[in-house]
Amino acid sequence: MNDASALVRALRDPASVKSLDSDGWTALVSIARAEQLAGSLAYQVQGLELPAAAVRLMADARRSAEHQRRQALWEAEMARRALGDLDVPVILLKGTAYVAAGLSAGIGRSIGDLDILVPRDALDAVERALIERGGWEWVKEDEYDDAYYRDHMHELPPLIHKERDRMIDVHHTILPRTAKPTPDAQALVADSVPMANGLHFLSPPDMICHAAAHLFADGDLAGGLRNLWDIDRLCRDFFTQPGFWETLGERAERHELAKPVGRALRLAETLYGTPVDGDVAGRARAGDGLYLRRLFARDGWGCETRKPLRFAFYLRSHWLRMPPLMLARHLFTKWRKA
């Protein structure tokens, strides 16, 4: 098939790849790489009898994922060493949290920068400790971008490590301050789960809220298949725990994210057969189909297709993040500099 559904099917039902011919595999590999899901796919199909070339490619993808996992855990450990004396909870987010907590969502996941969440009133101390004790420094940003980050975003301007060349993003909440939903950052911190080494991860319901917020608010739905795969894996890891769905429903309300969480669950169910709860997921809406078409918009070369649809989503995601006037100012400043 000529869209990303080949990848979705392979993730959902790994044995289905046995019916692929080499052209099917070629497309699957390019799509999985483009969607940053090659590692996840490679672990899903591990152990299956596959064509020799596919076995090699999947082994390469696992090797790459293993490298990213090790690097992510090490960056977290170095942040822990730099921040250990501060006595503030340091909460790992996204991919690093999944691998550190040993969750299924972390298996084979591609991981970029280190993202951490700390209480807002600890931001300055955290920033100072990372720079003075940890060896991180500012990525060269000009004044405008810097002020922009500090005034409107949910994170410090990114820091990069002097020696290791790796970035860290320090957040104090999970959405920009200009976004319409205002997640309860204090509750995120209060409910976070400590690990043996002293670092924390978000409570499982909050992890799902974060992934859903990220899906619809941050970017143009790019990376959506991976995001929904995270949500699928998280639900499967936790849905049998007593009271899980009730808590998820409550948390989503509390963070003003009930709609994104509901839609994310419905999309994940449609794509990956995720076990979901009808009350939290809500009833199907007209927009769901549009989102699905957007998520599938990739051809067998790994190219994005359906460009106009993508552009509509990009505008939309900018509107979500910034009130209109501020957006105009932001774009204008960018144009002038270009």
Binding site: S22, W25, T26, V29, S30, P51, A53, A54, R56, L57, D60, W301, G302, C303
Partner: peptide, 11 residues
């Protein structure tokens, strides 16, 4: 090659 290691696109 039936199943290439890499895809290049010129567009």
């Amino acid at each position: 090659t039936a199943l290439p290691d890499f895809t290049v696109r010129l567009f």
